[in-house]
Amino acid sequence: MSFHIKHYPAPQTSKTGWKLLIKPSKEAVAELRQKLCAQWKKAQGTNVQSVLAKLNPIIRGWANYHRIAVAKEIFNKLDHWMLRKAEHYTKWMHPNKSAEWRHQKYWGRLHLDRLDSWVFGDKPTGGYLLKFSWFPIERHKLVKGRSSPDDPTLKDYWMKRQAAKARDLTFSKQKLAKRQKGRCLECGESLFNEEEIQVHHRLAKSLGGKDLYSNLALVHLLCHQHIHAVTERSMRDCQQYNDRELLMEEKRMHHQSQQEENKELCGS
């Protein structure tokens, strides 16, 4: 179970004397740590860019899913835990270097929009590891009245609610989702039904297809697997694109932050 739901005594703030709080469950946090641990172990011996490409999608997905709950404290604890994991990684990579040297090489204010000097990443490229606490808590919006997803007259209402989830996608995927009007290319259903979303090459790269928007589309993971099973195509190129796109998005955000900061300096 992803969430823990419990009534807590609140005689000072609630008319009923109780307050319902929804938090990420201990089981969900434990499962997340196991998954991240596995990726950190695989990362030993690989460069920082590979580390970011593997960890950032997991952090982004888990934080976006759980930020509708009372999760601020848990997010902060996960960030401290990830700091220790990053320190272990750098120590394994550079066993003969001092802690000060490793901190100087791998940590800094890489996210220019935040006054945080302890951001782990790759200074030459500007890529950095996301932090759970960077994802703001957003309470779930209650459904209006007795609105039902099965009511055909409310189809537009439910599509708009689901399309709002597009803001959690990377910039490139947001552009594709808008072009597809929030629908999966394969099944035609809403992209935002809690299934994993992947980028698909309309024309396979092995057949000359390019990494251009005109040749890319968003599909559900299961739909993606179905497409490749039917056409006997390999998902390798698509998976490589999905991994690379996440890393490029981090670089784009870093570059944009630098440009905005330069404008502010020039204007001051």
Rank of each mutant, 00 (worst) to 15 (best):
L212K: 14
R161G: 03
L216K: 11
H140F: 12
A164R: 13
L222T: 13
K160V: 14
V199L: 05
E196P: 02
L154C: 01
G145C: 12
K178N: 07
D168A: 12
L216I: 06
S148D: 15
C187Y: 07
H140Y: 10
V143K: 07
G182Q: 03
L169P: 02
L191S: 06
W158H: 06
R161Y: 00
K175H: 08
K160D: 14
E138G: 02
H224P: 07
I197L: 11
R146P: 00
C187I: 10
G188M: 09
S147R: 08
N193Y: 00
D168Q: 04
A177K: 09
L212H: 12
L216E: 03
S214V: 10
K160R: 12
M159Q: 14
L207H: 10
D151V: 02
T153N: 09
L212G: 09
C223D: 07
Q239T: 03
L212V: 06
P149N: 09
H200E: 03
R139F: 11
G182E: 01
C184S: 07
S172I: 02
R183Q: 09
E232K: 15
P136G: 01
T153L: 04
E189C: 03
M159W: 11
E189P: 00
S148N: 15
R139Y: 13
H201W: 14
T170D: 08
E196L: 10
P136Q: 00
D150Y: 00
S234I: 04
K205N: 03
V230A: 14
P136W: 06
